[in-house]
Design a protein around this nucleic acid. Structure first.
Lengths: 215, 215
DNA sequence: CACTTGTCCTGTCATGCCGTCAGCTTACCG
DNA sequence: CGGTAAGCTGACGGCATGACAGGACAAGTG
């Protein structure tokens, strides 16, 4: 699937090259966590990686290009989020647990990757298709599983027919992503982390099943 | 409240100066809609406004400073969102209408200001308190009204006691904001604009009242 | 009308980042 | 050991930044 790693000018990267490349990515990742995206400069990344700006441009067309690479790596890891929903039950107590674990896993993943996810979100919102594709790759796994769950309940007549499963799932996933990326900001609303989770889980459960959870 | 408009070096701006200043803000606003935040340069804004970069720096410390100004102006306009929830009923058919109008008004406001709201969102997510404050100012009006509605239903025993009104309201508002800022992206999930709104309204209604709406 | 005052804008300059290239060093292989 | 390709960097023209001094302009004053 993934072809050979190549430099901008077409050479194939060897062991040493790949290490340098990865180091640059790691340093960029760090910088994204510590300073505003707008202020991240190539020269700073290069300095931090103990190399020169010219080296950076050997592996990436620009900062955005490198960011896309980081995002791609993260998206691969994030595909595991699908396991939070797939094949789970939404009935009775099990349903409540499913909702809780989904919220938990989602927020956790977001907290661990907040810096890069911010940038991906921005890129997607600005209409960049590449960023949107990556954002989809992460959210889609959860989204389609949720949509399936809603559709199944719908076919059993337990959810109204005029509900659009994909829309509901998309909205719930967007909610989780938004809350996750403003986790620190939410606390200034006088809502504590621990209190937030069960309420999110409640909303997810309500959205999927249309009913209050049985605890 | 708002003191006199001042230049960076302390002079008070007169009529002409204020006009120039506003023109710079308008042009910056345009640029934010048409190109990625990261690529917006002072020199481009100045050129577009038919003036020089030096003039820009007379009124704003940097791009971010000007963006904050635009955001502030928008936040004042956005305070009107409160009217979408305040004093409305959440019972019966009126409740369903309230939810629909909230979703409608919210998405509309977001669509009209998507460019600046993206940047505010990013700034807030990056932990910048000034941006977070502005974001709060916009969302808080809706948020606290929603929280009040939940709390009232709760006091009547129509909503479970272990629900945290502020958390529910915050999550719902975050959902609306997130969906609004990815309106174009959502369509690639195979969900059409028109279909999205009633489903969002359903989620809002479910979240606030805990029940399916009566249509 | 000349003069003063204060606002408003720009030319210019030092600084620093961007993005590219030629060319040097290093590693690998027969 | 010599050839070849990978890997890295110094250096450079170009452009954005941000500061300053000074010119242009409008309005008020004698």
């Amino acid at each position: 699937m993934t072809g050979q790693v190549r430099t901008v000018d077409g050479r194939v990267a060897g062991r040493r090259g790949q290490a340098t490349r990865q180091k640059l990515l790691d340093c960029l990742s760090d910088m994204l966590s510590s300073s505003p995206y707008r202020d991240v400069k190539v020269i700073d990344v290069a300095r931090k990686a103990g190399t020169s700006p010219a080296t950076f441009y050997q592996y990436f067309p620009d900062v955005e290009g490198a960011v896309l690479e980081i995002a791609e790596q993260m998206a691969s890891r994030g595909a595991g989020l699908a396991g939070l929903v797939e094949g789970r039950s939404w009935a009775g107590k099990a349903g409540w647990q499913t909702a809780q674990e989904l919220v938990d896993g989602f927020l956790d993943f977001w907290r661990k990757n907040d810096a890069i996810l911010r940038v991906v979100d921005l890129g997607a919102a600005e209409g960049d298709k590449r960023f949107n594709k990556i954002r989809m790759k992460i959210l889609n796994s959860v989204n389609s599983s949720l949509a399936d769950a809603v559709a199944e309940l719908q076919s059993k007549g337990r959810v109204d027919k005029d509900v659009n499963p994909a829309a509901i799932a998309g909205a719930l996933v967007a909610m989780l992503a938004a809350v996750a990326s403003h986790q620190k900001g939410v606390s200034s609303w006088g809502v504590k982390q621990a209190e937030l989770k069960p309420n999110l889980a409640l909303l997810v459960h309500l959205g999927v099943t249309g009913k209050k959870p049985a605890k």
